[in-house]
Design a protein around this nucleic acid. Structure first.
Lengths: 123, 123
DNA sequence: CCAACTGTATTATAAGTATTGATACACTTA
DNA sequence: TAAGTGTATCAATACTTATAATACAGTTGG
């Protein structure tokens, strides 16, 4: 379900956050479905439970999950979280567009590339 | 010429590298033009000379500048550096496209946004 | 009831990276 | 020759990440 990339410069807990965000946003984890327990996921990924705890705390803080003491963490119904994430995505796209300009990538080239590579399926 | 963003998660030396790459790639710093001296730029930015040294070392390693002992660092003629950077740019774009899919951003929406925001000038 | 799950909090430690600070040395140039 | 340049090195500090070891409280199925 989750695969860590130790070549990735970003910290482990952040990778975990992003993976669950993706699973939640694309519907693989519907509202009220349960996430793996802190200890269980730590076992599966061979990392420390505290790292999972940190990731879950952030997911909660961003509104993606809600915790129930003694039972587990569950996917939230919060639609705001998704739209905040979308806004951040478009900000990233804007930053990349700026970068493209300074690198001398033309509008046509950019759009052509995006058009060619933006298809469903090949996730 | 260079403005540091202390909110940015990336290290200072990396911000400096990227700024000079942009200045070189968009022609603001033509080949053989001289970069500020290590000590001078450190003074201007109120940071340690070692940090500048590290940034310049990376710019040299990537082929953007060449150093002359006792004289300074100068913009290289290396065209490979630019094309390598372009490749990395398109890899970033590809990653962002993948992300967009998992966030439920449609192809049309993506292309529409890129088309609207990709114009020269507003750098 | 209780054992075995859950989440949560705390403290300590280790490791890696970024940055600063202080030198020192070699080369170039006005 | 003085003042600029690059380059190398070492130490110290600060911050972040991740691990390790507990402890405590709530939930649940047998």
């Amino acid at each position: 379900m989750i695969i860590l990339d130790y070549q990735d410069r970003r910290p482990i807990y952040e990778q975990i956050v992003e993976k669950f965000q993706a699973l939640i946003l694309n519907g693989a984890l519907p509202p009220d479905s349960q996430l793996p327990s802190v200890r269980r996921l730590a076992m599966d990924l061979s990392i420390n439970p505290n790292t999972i705890q940190r990731a879950y705390a952030q997911l909660e803080q961003e509104g993606f999950v809600y915790p129930v003491k003694g039972r587990g963490n569950f996917v939230s119904h919060d639609m705001e979280a998704a739209s905040r994430k979308r806004e951040m995505f478009f900000q990233e796209l804007l930053d990349l567009i700026k970068k493209g300009r300074t690198y001398g990538v033309s509008r046509e080239e950019f759009l052509r590339f995006a058009d060619d590579h933006y298809r469903e399926g090949a996730i």
